[in-house]
Design a protein around this nucleic acid. Structure first.
Lengths: 167, 167
DNA sequence: TATTGTTATACTCTATAACTATA
DNA sequence: TATAGTTATAGAGTATAACAATA
């Protein structure tokens, strides 16, 4: 019943031919923060994308929905700035969320130039669902680094992000 | 002598007019790993780019030089794979490093299809210099998260990167 | 037949300048 | 004169298909 992994593989790998693939020495890179930071970020985002493929949300879309949900009525440029997204690039983001009926740009009474962002009922429902999916990723991360490790990680990363304020 | 910061600014900010800018609530995002991970990665790479502007190396170029330097004679596709770079995209990378006289593609005796990569003398010199610049970034990171914090961070990030092996 | 390096290409992200309507 | 949203656009980075040379 069970088929060997080698037989399932479409191509013969060096391992299949009993050839040794000498691993590269990347110790000069893995010991500094930047390299594993980038690799970890890519891995977590890839994992996120796999988990959110069915629900159809990118990391940027998830963070946008979460930001609007927690700060309804704030103007578009404030949400964009808080997320570190350039205003011009945030237009297409909102176009898409609005097209899908998840968020809306309301008329601001105070200043007719600006748009007050808010989630629709569908957007709030999807955000609730998305939080559950995200929670599963967080649990998987806890399995990898431990409960305390996850919290330490968040703290250290938040402090690292302060580098951006030091030009 | 000293000019006030407000006078140096080109544009009047809300602070200049004593307007309060209510900060957004992003606690739902900052408490999960993915968000600060991405922000920290961007901050560290931006800092890297500022430090390496004079020397003219991107993070990807630095990691490529380091990988070739520690593994001379390895074929192009092995170096690319180890760095997580697609083979087609690595061609332009090597073209540029070769054009600048930092690395070279040598004829492999064993297999005439493959190219054995190596650093030139100039490449080794630049890599030595680059390591010093990178070391300064690492010290700045230690100032932010502490000596033990930096090491903990590297360990946690390396374990996080294992997510990539779990489809 | 499979692998190595390569070309071509497309798609996503990101950054900047400039327009419009409002203030 | 400045700001909010927008348009247009250009540059990275990344992913895939296909080809020639070689195994």
């Amino acid at each position: 019943m069970a088929v060997s992994r080698a037989r399932l593989a479409t191509k013969a790998t060096p391992e299949d031919r009993n050839e040794t693939i000498a691993p590269l020495d990347l110790s000069a890179l893995t010991s500094i923060v930047g390299y594993p930071l980038r690799r970890a970020q890519l891995a977590v985002f890839d994992d996120f994308n796999r988990r959110f493929a069915a629900i159809g949300l990118t990391p940027a879309q998830y963070s946008t929905l979460a930001a609007i949900g927690a700060n309804p009525g704030r103007k578009q440029s404030d949400i964009a700035a808080a997320l570190g997204i350039q205003r011009p690039n945030f237009v297409a983001m909102m176009d898409e969320l609005e097209r899908r009926g998840l968020a809306e740009r309301l008329q601001s009474e105070a200043d007719r130039r600006s748009r007050a962002l808010a989630l629709t009922a569908a957007g709030r429902t999807l955000l609730t669902q998305a939080r559950r999916v995200q929670g599963e990723q967080e649990k998987e991360i806890e399995r990898l680094v431990g409960r305390a490790g996850r919290e330490t990680l968040v703290q250290l990363l938040q402090r690292l992000a302060e580098l951006e304020n030091r030009p």
